Simulated assay, not measured.
Amino acid sequence: MDPELEAFIPLVPQVDLSDPIADRKNYAERAAAAPVPDTTGLDIEDRTVPADPDVPVRIYRPQGAQGAIVWLHGGSWVMGDLDTDHPWTTRLAAASGTTVISVGYRLAPEHRFPAALDDAYAVLTWTAEHAAELGIDPARIAVGGHSAGGAMAAAVALRARDQQGPPIRFQLLNQPGLDDRQETWSTDPVAATLGGGHAHMAAAWRHWLGSATATPYAAPARATDLTGLPPAHIATAEFCPYRDVDITYAQRLLQAGVSVELHQWPGTFHGSQAILSAEISQRQIAELAATLRRALTE
């Protein structure tokens, strides 16, 4: 474990997702305690995307931005909202020079698959249709997210390919939860237990799927055909339950002819990039932002 991150291990909460309401409250309180991000140079606006039901979004516009990313927050499909992701999306927009459209998708278990995916896809479609109004190039739209949000970003890319939807220029997937099948999860003892580990992930999938059988749109690692997908950047953490499946997904994308950049961050754990005081976390965020900037400007 990275020494700076190791010091925080005793503070990592064990979340079993047995009480989603309480877990959301605690998640929001932890996010509110994060350092306040600098919003200088950003135009931030809350909007509502017409859909069934309507989807709240928060748009972060840096000066001179040409491209945009439809961004999906983490939280195991159960936790998180526009406010909890505000520190992250602010930094991503400012550092990348990219318009970030943060999606307030519906949460499980009240709204199971495919509710959140439908929300995300509706926002992608709206973004493409309103590119001129948003001041962005419709050929420079990416999708991305962290953890559960990363999985949904990958699923949005699959759905857009299959349904001839809006063209997606790039996928930015940070520690995505791509597979519900536990046999693919990392067996490292730290990854299997830290923060709830495998038990947390299994509960998240139960909330997300309910009694439904996982499809590739719910668990993108189940997709058998990865051809024709947008180029991707996949970032993994050494002590993350999804490490191995994410690395395998990157390899499968390459084998399918998709351009991929894979970065395995040693000494990190799932979500540890939120520990902003750690030098390695600062490097992770800087790399994601730089990667997004290159993908949408070159």
Rank of each mutant, 00 (worst) to 15 (best):
H111R: 13
A132C: 03
A221D: 10
G150A: 11
L209F: 03
L134K: 01
Y105L: 10
P166F: 10
R206W: 02
T184A: 04
G210V: 03
A203T: 12
T184V: 08
V123N: 00
A131I: 03
H130I: 03
T184W: 09
V123T: 02
F170N: 09
A192C: 08
H130Y: 01
T193A: 13
Q164T: 14
V143L: 08
R106S: 05
A221M: 12
A204G: 10
A214L: 09
A151G: 15
P216A: 10
S102N: 13
A154Y: 10
A219D: 11
A153F: 10
P109L: 11
A115R: 01
E183Q: 14
E133I: 09
G195D: 02
G197K: 06
H130N: 15
G104H: 06
L178A: 02
S102I: 09
H111C: 13
Q175S: 14
A151T: 06
H146L: 14
D225V: 06
A221Q: 04
T187Q: 14
Q182P: 08
L117N: 05
M152E: 11
A199D: 13
R159G: 03
P176S: 03
P114L: 11
R169Q: 15
L117T: 07
T213Q: 15
G135Y: 04
Y217C: 04
H200I: 06
T125H: 02
L172H: 02
Q163A: 15
A151Q: 05
M152N: 08
P167M: 12
A128L: 00
R159S: 05
L194N: 01
P138Q: 10
W185C: 11
G150F: 12
S186H: 04
D119C: 09
A219H: 04
R112W: 11
D180A: 14
W185H: 15
A218W: 00
W208T: 00
A223P: 01
A214H: 02
P189Y: 11
A212E: 13
L134H: 01
R161I: 12
L173Q: 04
G177M: 15
R222Y: 06
P138E: 11
G104N: 10
G104R: 09
V156T: 12
G177S: 15
R112H: 05
L117Q: 03
Q171R: 05
P220M: 06
A148T: 12
D162V: 09
L194D: 01
L194I: 15
D179V: 07
R140E: 08
L173H: 02
A212L: 12
A148M: 08
A139E: 14
P114F: 09
A191E: 07
A148R: 04
S211R: 13
M152D: 07
G150L: 14
S102M: 08
P189V: 14
D188P: 06
A128K: 08
